[in-house]
Amino acid sequence: MRKTVNTSSRITILLTGIAATLFSLWYGQNNGLLPVAASEDASQVDGIFSLMMTVATGLFLLIQGALLFSAIKFRRRKGDETDGPPIAGNVPLEIAWTAIPTVMVLLISVYSFDVYNTMGGLDREASQDPGPQKVSYRSGQHPGSELLAFDPGQKYLALGVGASPQQKEEPEEPLPVEVNGIQYAWIFTYPDTGVVSGELHLPVGRQIDLKITAGDVLHAFWLPEFRLKQDAVPGRETQLRFEPNRVGEYSVVCAELCGAYHGVMKTTLHVQTPEEYEHWSQEQQIAQADKLENSVAATPNSRSASEFLAPYAERMGVESQTLEQLKASPTASASN
């Protein structure tokens, strides 16, 4: 078969190319695959996804198209026992398909780098792993026989997503929340007010600073609508800083396998107007003052809460207490 390309097929190729490009551009923007974005950072991440979807759609059409076309056009005809043309390479073509992908991935890298930096991923205090921060010295032979304690001599460093470069300039202090992951629940402590809760309530439009740790095994704190995730590691603290800009109820999911009931380790994030949030906070403080004595959750700061819960690490399966906590949380019972 002759492989000379005549003008009309040239035009066809050109038009298909343009159509494919336009479709990729459109699909990259309008794929609707992601859930709502509830913060500015999340929208930025979606921007990367759009770009990558565009590139991927284009390459998908190009290569699947080439495969399909070959399968139809270059099929061996019945009775044709000859070989195809002995083309064993084409240097300009090879250079093109090495160089173009290189440029494309570098572009995606640089864009991702930029977004990551804007999110605060390179904040110097929040992007370094200081290693185990709470150290303990073993006295007995049995693991878990002693408690974790913070090493006092160390300066504060955490790992995760911190303040973005421009947030560092802002005078407003972020709202700190301490997050503790235990099998199979999240416990949120608001150090400013002493409120302890199984659900996360946050005011809209304010910087939030989550300090995340775990009491037993690894967990991962995931906010799908905020495109944020960070592992919770026993013995060290990790951080997530973000600013919700959309009132609503979002899910909080544990994304790291943490045991049999990993799947129910979920709760709800309520992003509220500042007034609603204030109201909720007051209510909690009053309620907790009442039952200070007989509740785990009322221990006024998370470190002692985690100490209290440390023995959990040694147990397996479902604790009756844990199950009760889970039943108490609405998302968990909904999915049960």
Binding site: D129, P130, G131, P132, V135, Y137, D151, Q154
Partner: peptide, 14 residues
């Protein structure tokens, strides 16, 4: 080497 560099006191006290 990682343990050495991340654990605050190495070898651990005692």
């Amino acid at each position: 080497v990682i343990y050495r560099s991340v654990v605050p006191v190495w070898p651990p006290e005692g």
